[in-house]
Lab assay of single mutants.
Amino acid sequence: MIIKINGKYYKIKKIEKNPNGKYTITTENGKKYEFKNVKIFSEEELK
């Protein structure tokens, strides 16, 4: 799965839903981001 952050695309390693309704997304390079609204892309959609 792929996520778009600030115009760049990252591969997703893990998605966790937090009790506060936000999502914590861990990218393949180990960085964590927290979002309220998340749009996930499949690799097929990006081709």
Rank of each mutant, 00 (worst) to 15 (best):
K32A: 04
E45G: 08
I25M: 02
K17E: 05
I3S: 01
N6C: 14
K13S: 11
F41E: 06
G7F: 03
K22C: 15
L46H: 08
E28T: 13
K14A: 13
E44Q: 10
I12Q: 00
T27H: 02
I12V: 14
K13H: 10
K14C: 11
I12C: 04
Y23P: 00
E34I: 15
T24A: 05
I15L: 09
Y33G: 01
Y23L: 09
E28P: 05
Y10A: 03
G7Q: 06
S42F: 15
I12G: 00
K14Y: 10
G21K: 02
S42M: 12
G7K: 04
K36D: 15
E16W: 07
T24N: 04
T24R: 05
E28H: 13
F41D: 04
I2A: 09
N20M: 05
I25H: 00
K47H: 12
F35Q: 03
Y10D: 01
E44H: 10
Y9H: 04
V38N: 04
K31E: 13
K39L: 14
K47E: 12
I40T: 06
I3D: 00
K31G: 09
K4Q: 12
E44P: 09
S42I: 11
F41V: 13
T24L: 13
K4C: 15
K47Y: 03
E34T: 15
I2V: 12
N37M: 07
E16P: 00
N20C: 06
M1S: 07
I15P: 00
G30D: 06
I25Y: 03
I5T: 01
N18C: 13
Y33F: 13
K13Q: 12
Y10N: 02
K11Q: 06
T27N: 01
I3C: 09
Y10G: 01
K39T: 13
K11V: 08
E43Q: 05
F35D: 01
K31P: 03
K11C: 07
K4V: 14
I40C: 14
K32S: 09
I15Y: 03
K32P: 01
N18S: 11
L46Q: 08
Y10P: 00
V38M: 10
Y33T: 01
E34A: 05
N29P: 01
K32D: 04
I25N: 00
I40A: 05
K17D: 02
P19C: 11
K36L: 12
T24H: 04
I2T: 08
K8Y: 09
G21P: 00
E34R: 08
E16V: 11
K31C: 15
F41P: 06
T26Q: 03
S42P: 07
K39Q: 13
I40G: 07
K36G: 10
K4F: 13
N6P: 00
G21N: 04
N37F: 14
K13Y: 09
E43W: 05
K8H: 10
I40V: 08
E16N: 03
